[in-house]
Nucleic acid binder design. Sequence first.
DNA 1: AGGCATTTTAGAATGGTTTCTAACAATATT
DNA 2: AATATTGTTAGAAACCATTCTAAAATGCCT
Lengths: 329, 329
Amino acid sequence: MVKLRDIAEETGYSISTVSKALSGKGRMSEETRNTILSVAKQLGYTPDFYAKSMASKTKILVIGLIVPDITNPFFAYLTRGVERACGESCLLVLMDSFRSLHREEQLIRTARFYGVNGVIVGNSRVNDELINEISKYVPVVIFDKECKCENVVSIVMDNYYGAYLATKHLVENGCKNIVHFGGTQELYVSIQRAHGYETAVKESGLESHIARIGYTFDDGYKAAKKLLSVGKTFDGAFCMNDLVALGVMKAIKEEGLKVPEDVAVVGFDDDKQLCEVTVPSLSSVRQPVEMMGETAGKAIIELINGHSNAKKIIFSPSLIVRDSSLRGG
Amino acid sequence: MVKLRDIAEETGYSISTVSKALSGKGRMSEETRNTILSVAKQLGYTPDFYAKSMASKTKILVIGLIVPDITNPFFAYLTRGVERACGESCLLVLMDSFRSLHREEQLIRTARFYGVNGVIVGNSRVNDELINEISKYVPVVIFDKECKCENVVSIVMDNYYGAYLATKHLVENGCKNIVHFGGTQELYVSIQRAHGYETAVKESGLESHIARIGYTFDDGYKAAKKLLSVGKTFDGAFCMNDLVALGVMKAIKEEGLKVPEDVAVVGFDDDKQLCEVTVPSLSSVRQPVEMMGETAGKAIIELINGHSNAKKIIFSPSLIVRDSSLRGG
DNA sequence: AGGCATTTTAGAATGGTTTCTAACAATATT
DNA sequence: AATATTGTTAGAAACCATTCTAAAATGCCT
């Protein structure tokens, strides 16, 4: 490994002069600088990152981002948002827990030993104590979870409002019998979305019908199939997420009904790849995921730099209307 | 920031003793160790990663992964594969170029200044000179591109074979008139796939018809629509990727034809989210993306450690048959 | 008690850079 | 010609942990 001293010996200048020539900070004769630069290039000098970080007061920020599954579009967009906030000024270390809670906890626990200056946790399953524990050492930004510790910023989405929006939209499009294909009750977001749905339905004088199912294409397909096979018809479906919605749509088509004419369908998450590509295209509630990621990035940088105040940042979703819920007239 | 000296002053022991107590390496009385450990905990000591890395000879490996767009499932799976290879032994720094060639070049150029020990480039657009240049300083693994430099490992997919497989499959399912909805000619993979298609078609005594379009849902939709509107019918479609295939399928349906009865369709990439969720589900050529990522990770680690021989690693695709290409009898 | 072996602790060098201060040389001012 | 001014370069301290070597302290033996 070529170091400053090697260049100093080769050129005959001192180490400090070489350092300044390469960093371009101090002033010196053009000749000296050019000599040093060319020798440095010739020798293939690469600065030692660790030595550099240690010597300079402004160490490069390293941000750890822990996600349960980078192949899930939600987390991919989140990551991209964080990347955007990082820009040139900090390094993003990605840690994927492969959906293993154990590995996730391990990552959180060990992140700080890897020189990470702050941690963004893109998931809400880890328990509060762990967050409490590590936030003593390293600032933390966490999603969809409220945390009262110092040094922790929560970023949450208003799931209640998103569900409310979607359901109201179905009502406005003439639906009288709206079913909510929802998630299991353990997950906080499921509860919130179901709650938003219920509020909207009751407000409109309609009856609420919640099918607690799950989060996959198959879950949606089977649940809708079951309902339709026992003659339980409906003319609107508000679904937990886009995959469930697509499953429901498949079942509807198989029963000879049409979307949106017979049943209007709305999903959640607005996975563009998915929503814009199906026939008919799928209406969905959009979370500003990338923006949330960017906000998380900015928040952690502020926390690290010691001047942050926000403890909780709430984002509002918006409804993206496509063909699956639009009936003319 | 609490450092070893603070603990040394607090306990009255020397810095070296404190260091050894915390690392658990040298031998010392239980009492001393316990005292030091408890004071360290009380003070909230966190070792300085940079100082640690510099002092100890075994610096932690840092691998840079440059992708053009993490929200693209291909790169998300690639990333996951690399993560898997990293395990506990190295840190993965993710760099997203946001599809900007300029930014990508910049990232490649500056990666080594961030203390990255090796770089994986998940994209083939950058020019050879740049790769050449940086491979002088840092080992490189690159995808879908052959590079003759020392210090560079290429990982390539046999696109020719994938296209051949898909086309043969269509022939076996009774297609007599197969169109290839392909990509532009600048991209190496497009050329390869078109080539594989042509070989299979000619081998089967059929005529070749290549539509050079692009890579999006819309591209596929418009191209198929155009063909069908001028009465150019076909009974098989091998598409550049899954999105194009879905666009083609939409056009076919709109013209009152059925998939797969009237036209059998095969895509490329096997984006599971997409393929399994459409009606009918889409047959597609699968690239072992995650495996390729894992291989890339292992290769870069070997390169960094100085014992690598492989210069080019070739992966074979496989065909995943679903409903869109299966006709009974 | 003196000498030896063994355990425990301290001191100093090391890693590669940055940055402050001081020294030096060259030019300009009086 | 002596001093002031400016521009260049060298030297040394600092960053913080590791690790090697040497010294001090302890215990044991004769």
